[in-house]
Design a protein around this nucleic acid. Structure first.
Length: 220
DNA sequence: ACCCAGGGTCATA
DNA sequence: TATGACCATGGG
């Protein structure tokens, strides 16, 4: 079973997902922080609040009082923690000159800068790199570990960068330069999440059943 | 009532 | 390096 075959099976089952669901690149980054261990339905409410307050803007978020930011994002949970994280990110974003300056930055250097922000870990950084900056970085999340672990294509408990490197390397080898990596990684991660939301659930712990549109062992 | 969600930080050993 | 506590809302 190749990583590309899994992607193709998911694409056939669910169709293109057209990620990231956001209107602006800043909204992608804000959403990446707000969705940390949080259902997307809750993130959407917080994002809507920010738009309603005309606060989907790095300067506005940076200058607003902590309690105000917390109130805007309350539905997304962890609002005290995430308000601080959003302001940390916006401080970096503004100080760094915004998207136009950051676009020219090398991917590895940009990743290290993102990881240096308190509140931005490896998955959030890779969400931003892939979905806001179109960099060929494969996002690893709980759904990704679960799927590849059940398909016996990964251990499941590897360190983040080990699993990311493995998936990226295998896909590079299977593609052989005949295809752009960033669009593939983009669609692949979105499909894994789509699959995970209704089929590849934490329980029951089915083994290699996670590619079917309906998980066979889930009924057993 | 319980489990889960598109994680990350910090203290501790 | 690797656990565990903690953060908090909302849906099934």
């Amino acid at each position: 079973m190749s990583f590309l075959k899994v992607h193709d099976a998911l694409l056939a089952a669910y169709g293109p997902q057209r990620w990231w669901p956001a209107r602006t690149t800043l909204e992608v980054m804000v959403g990446a922080i707000l969705t940390q261990n949080t259902a997307w339905t809750n993130v959407k409410k917080a994002v809507a609040n920010l738009h309603a307050a005309r606060a989907m803007d790095a300067e506005v978020i940076l200058r607003a009082p902590h309690r105000t930011v917390a109130a805007w994002i309350r539905p997304a949970g962890y609002f005290n923690v995430k308000a601080k994280r959003l302001q940390n990110f916006c401080a970096w974003y503004v100080e760094r000159g915004g998207k136009k300056k950051l676009r020219r930055c090398d991917t590895v250097a940009l990743r290290q800068e993102l990881l240096s922000i308190n509140g931005v870990g490896p998955e959030t950084a890779d969400d931003i790199l892939l979905y806001a900056f179109d960099r060929p970085v494969f996002v690893i999340d709980a759904y990704t570990r679960r799927l590849f672990s059940r398909l016996r294509m990964a251990e499941g408990d590897e360190p983040y960068d080990a699993l990311r490197g493995s998936v990226e390397q295998n896909l590079r080898r299977e593609i052989r330069g005949r295809r752009e990596l960033a669009p593939l990684f983009n669609e692949y991660h979105a499909l894994i999440v789509r699959h995970g939301k209704d089929v590849c659930r934490p329980r029951p712990r089915c083994a290699a059943c996670c590619l079917a549109p309906r998980c066979p062992a889930a009924e057993a």
